[in-house]
Each structure stands twice: as C-alpha cells, then as structure tokens.
Nucleic acid binder design. Sequence first.
DNA 1: ATGGTTGGCCTCCAA
Length: 261
Amino acid sequence: MKIVTWNINSIRLRLSLLKKLIEEHQPDVICLQEIKVEDLLFPLDSISELGYKYLYYSGQKSYHGVAILSKIQATDNFIVEFYNEDKRHIAVKIKDIEIHNFYIPAGGDIPDIKENPKFKHKLEYIDLAQNWFTTNRSKQDKIIVLGDLNIAPHEHDVWSSKQLKNVVSHTGIEREKLINFQNSLEFIDSARHFMPMDQKLYTWWSYRNLDWLKSDRGRRLDHIWVSANLKGRMKSIYSLKDARSWTQPSDHVPYILELHE
DNA sequence: ATGGTTGGCCTCCAA
C-alpha cells in the first residue's frame, strides 16, 4: 500500500499535477494539504475520474483545507478542530490503520509568542494535537500521523541548521515540541527510519528562491510517522524532488511511504 | 542584512 502526503497549494490549480503524480506512482491513499477550496466547490468529478472513488475533505475558502483521496473505502472518518475553526485536520480508518492528515499552522515570521500570535497558535496547536492522541489513543493502536507539519525537527532536515536556528520552522522550541509529540506515543519518523540522520532530506523549497535547484536550500516540513506496531511493514520512502520542477509547481513535493500489505 | 515568489481573491493576506 502506497500512501502520499503532499501540500498541493490549491487543488484546483494543480489538478494536472495531481494526475501526473497518480500516473507515475499509483498511490492507494493521497493526503493533501492547503487545498484552498470550500467543500461546495471541491472538484469531485475531476478527482473521481482519476480513479479515487472515496473522497474525504474538509475545506474552507481561500486558506488551508485538507483532503484524503482513497482507492479503498474508509470504515470511519472524522475531523478534530484542535484550536479554532481552521480546516487543518482530517482522519480516516483504512483497512486496519487510522490515518491522520494534518496541516499544522506555519506560524508567521517572528519566532516570539508575545510579538506574534501566529507563532503562539502554532505551538499551542501542537500541544492540543499531542494531548488529543495521549487522551484518545494508545500505543496499541495502528496509527499513521502525516502531513505538512511545518517544522524541520533535525539538523539535517534543513540546508543550514545554524543559519535557520531563529527561523520559524526550525527554532529550538518548535523542534522540541514536534519531537515530544512524536515521542508521546512512540511514533516512528519514516524518513529517518530509512535515511541516516547525517544525510540531508527535504520536501520543500521556497518559491522566493528562483535558483532553488542550484542552491538547494530546502527544508523537510512534510512527514509520515507510523506507530511502532507498523515498523515492520514499512517498505520504502521517497521525497519526489522532481515534482518541484514540474510546470507551475507547489513549493512542497509529494512524500511517499510504501507499506507491505 | 535584506528581499526574494506564489495563490486566492478583490486589495492584501498567508505562506
């Protein structure tokens, strides 16, 4: 089973790129963030035509919004509003696994909770998410947590840990909070399970750097965590760097986890 | 140290 997470940055604008992803990788489950469309305008027909019969989405006008496209019917699906009414989470149960798709707040530019309410919001969102899992789920459950978590937690998840230490997405407090969340139910970071900690791996390159390919100043903001009881089922991972060079790309690339059935 | 781009939508906000 192949599961993808991708911040698509407008699902309507990038339907052709979604089609390309599907043709090239045939994922069973596609988890999207920043679909930027209200539910009434969700492109149901176009996506059904791509072979995904089971569509679960939670959108709002202009901002945020998440979706899960599946070839397999979910036996359950639900939404948790962790902070306010922003559409940033949706969960499904597919086969024996509960998949949680997150779009964690980006947090604005200034890494100071007093000066920047968005940064405060981001940190509180992570606390609430962690608390939901420790209250409502246990280590015995089969769970996948994935999405645009908007934090690059480790040194080699960014092009320069030193130069980004005060940049939102890689500050000490964010890194600590994300790792605490991961450890609270002993989730395994699929990327670092396969890729040694001293090797660079990114899923995002800023639009603002037109020379992104040459300078390669990326960050690993998109993640797939699995519960420890799924450790043996992980087969492979890919961060599709090529997708950053597609026509009119998202600034994030799809990140794929392949599981043994 | 600074500014750089994109998407949605309606004049600028969020990323």
